[in-house]
Computed example of a mutant assay.
Amino acid sequence: MTKRRLLLSLHDVGPRFETEVDRLVDHVSRHVAPDHLAMLVVPNHWGAHPLIAGSPFASRLRDWSDRGVSLFAHGWYHRDDSRHAGAASRFKARHMTAGEGEFLGLDHRTALQRMTDGRALIEDISGKPVAGFVAPAWLYGAPALAALGQAGFALAEDHMKVWSPQSGATLARGPVITWASRSRARIASSLAVARLLPPLLHFAPVVRIAVHPGDAHVPSLMRSIDDALRRVRRSHAPARYGDLLTAPPTPCAY
Rank of each mutant, 00 (worst) to 15 (best):
residue 90 R to T: 09
residue 90 R to M: 08
residue 90 R to K: 13
residue 92 K to G: 03
residue 92 K to M: 15
residue 99 G to V: 05
residue 101 G to C: 07
residue 102 E to S: 07
residue 104 L to I: 09
residue 104 L to H: 03
residue 106 L to V: 02
residue 107 D to Y: 02
residue 108 H to W: 03
residue 108 H to F: 13
residue 109 R to E: 15
residue 109 R to Y: 01
residue 110 T to K: 03
residue 111 A to C: 02
residue 117 D to I: 04
residue 118 G to Y: 05
residue 123 E to F: 00
residue 126 S to H: 05
residue 130 V to W: 06
residue 132 G to F: 09
residue 134 V to L: 13
residue 137 A to D: 02
residue 137 A to E: 00
residue 138 W to V: 11
residue 142 A to D: 14
residue 142 A to I: 09
residue 143 P to Q: 04
residue 144 A to M: 03
residue 146 A to V: 06
residue 146 A to Y: 02
residue 147 A to T: 05
residue 147 A to V: 10
residue 147 A to C: 09
residue 149 G to N: 06
residue 152 G to E: 13
residue 153 F to Y: 10
residue 154 A to F: 03
residue 154 A to C: 06
residue 154 A to I: 01
residue 154 A to K: 14
residue 155 L to V: 03
residue 157 E to F: 01
residue 158 D to Y: 00
residue 159 H to F: 10
residue 160 M to W: 13
residue 164 S to L: 06
residue 166 Q to I: 11
residue 168 G to L: 06
residue 173 R to K: 15
residue 174 G to H: 07
residue 174 G to E: 07
residue 175 P to E: 15
residue 176 V to C: 13
residue 180 A to S: 11
residue 188 A to Q: 10
residue 189 S to R: 13
residue 193 V to A: 14
residue 195 R to M: 06
residue 196 L to E: 13
residue 198 P to M: 07
residue 199 P to L: 10
residue 199 P to W: 14
residue 199 P to G: 14
residue 201 L to V: 00
residue 203 F to K: 08
residue 203 F to Q: 15
residue 205 P to K: 05
residue 207 V to Y: 06
residue 207 V to T: 12
residue 207 V to C: 01
residue 208 R to T: 04
residue 210 A to H: 06
residue 211 V to G: 11
residue 211 V to F: 05
residue 215 D to C: 14
residue 215 D to M: 05
residue 217 H to Q: 15
residue 218 V to K: 08
residue 218 V to F: 01
residue 223 R to Y: 00
residue 223 R to V: 01
residue 224 S to M: 05
residue 229 L to W: 09
residue 230 R to Y: 04
residue 231 R to Y: 00
